[in-house]
Write a protein that binds this DNA or RNA. Structure first.
Lengths: 224, 224
DNA sequence: CAGAAGGTCAAGCAGTTGCTTGAAGCATGT
DNA sequence: ACATGCTTCAAGCAACTGCTTGACCTTCTG
């Protein structure tokens, strides 16, 4: 066997350029067409490289997708966890749900302000409902920790909600966030020009109040 | 050429059985694995039929997916359009947003109460963020009409919202609905046993109030 | 300069894909 | 009995898939 895939970067290294180009191409193509509809040859060609290079650098197509996720998320998710912990601590364990939502959703929506961040958000949103086991494994793993932090913080912010009710409300929050990131073009098709899910400032201004109001709705429990 | 794909059903017809089995198998497999990860051979095998039968009856893999969608949606979407028109008319053009949401979302969530309806909801939810052009074309086409009715009714129910704000709020509604239908298992993984997105009664009881509260939130406009 | 190591490449392997083919099966109407 | 037309099937085609191979090239090290 001859693959590195871990002990890289020994000095300036010429090959790291190729590696980065492969990650860029993979991110863009996976986002545009979906994991299953992109071949390693497509990626190699888009990266002006060779089909074997992707396997040399990453070992497999699956590992390449994982590397794409980790490259963008390692920083953002650490920030989200920090912000969540801060707003819980600052409120003495009883945070405002608006702050919790801002800490969880804000960083990823702001990521969409840059072109490459928007491309990644497309990929992340679309991957979130991908049934492919390889994709699921990666998505589950990469969001597991920050997801737990969010659920915990949301529970602390909404102590009046039953587990059931919290579950469903958080599902709505996740759904909205994923749908906005995935940007499938359906709504723009219905609304016509002038609006776009890729406008991350609009997402922050208009979607956050919606979600906050939803989380603050009086409990529906008791309604049998 | 020898394919029917349109002028079928001449009497009792033995072959309609096979056709129905193919639709069932395709719906289940597409829902479980995603359009791209299922081959026509997989479908034929699951339907205890032959690989050529799928192409004989439907012409192509794409047309088979379209037939799966149409079989379930032709009824439901007509009902949704009727309910939307009714609640607008009954309120003299100024419907309650709660009724609009119920008319639009209720029928599809209630579809999830049956086993095959739940399977279809899985497929529909997951297909809504599928970037594959064939899948997009089908999804766009099959939901276009009812989507326009809903946007129109929501606009009538919320006359104080700007086009921008209505767009983003409807995006949140769509997102929640799609995420619930797609049921990717992530939230259940975070919450543990006892809750499930496949519980359609829970969806109606808990998600609808969330979305109604979100739609009723005071306009955020003016906040520059 | 010789060697080693990291990196790139064209070629190829085995398996899968959507779809087609031509021969057969089958019930019907004459 | 015969012909008709819908339906099924095994076999096959060309294209594509993820991944591997072995030969090269380049750069750093002794």
């Amino acid at each position: 066997m001859n693959s590195p895939a871990s002990r890289r970067r020994r000095s300036t290294v010429p090959g790291d350029e190729t590696r980065e180009r492969l990650l860029d191409a993979a991110e863009r193509l996976f986002a545009e067409r979906g994991y299953a509809n992109v071949s390693t040859r497509d990626i190699a060609e888009a990266a002006r490289s060779n089909a074997a290079a992707a396997h040399y650098h990453f070992g497999s197509k699956e590992a390449l997708l994982e590397a794409v996720f980790k490259r963008r998320l390692d920083g953002v998710n650490a920030e989200r966890e920090r912000l969540l912990a801060e707003c819980v601590a600052a409120a003495g364990g009883r945070p405002d749900i608006a702050d919790v939502l801002e800490a969880f959703i804000g960083p990823t929506l702001r990521l969409g302000a840059t072109e490459e961040g928007h491309r990644f958000n497309l990929l992340a949103g679309r991957s979130s409902t991908d049934p492919n086991p390889e994709v699921r494994r990666i998505v589950f793993g990469v969001y597991d920790s920050v997801g737990r932090c969010f659920v915990e913080a949301a529970a602390a912010a909404c102590p009046d909600l039953s587990k059931d009710e919290l579950f469903w409300r958080i599902a709505c929050v996740y759904g909205a966030m994923m749908y906005i990131r995935a940007d499938n073009g359906r709504l723009q098709h219905l609304f016509g020009p002038g609006v776009s899910l890729s406008d991350s400032a609009g997402a922050l201004r208009y979607a956050m109040p919606f979600l906050t109001a939803g989380m603050r709705a009086p409990p529906a429990a008791g309604t049998e």
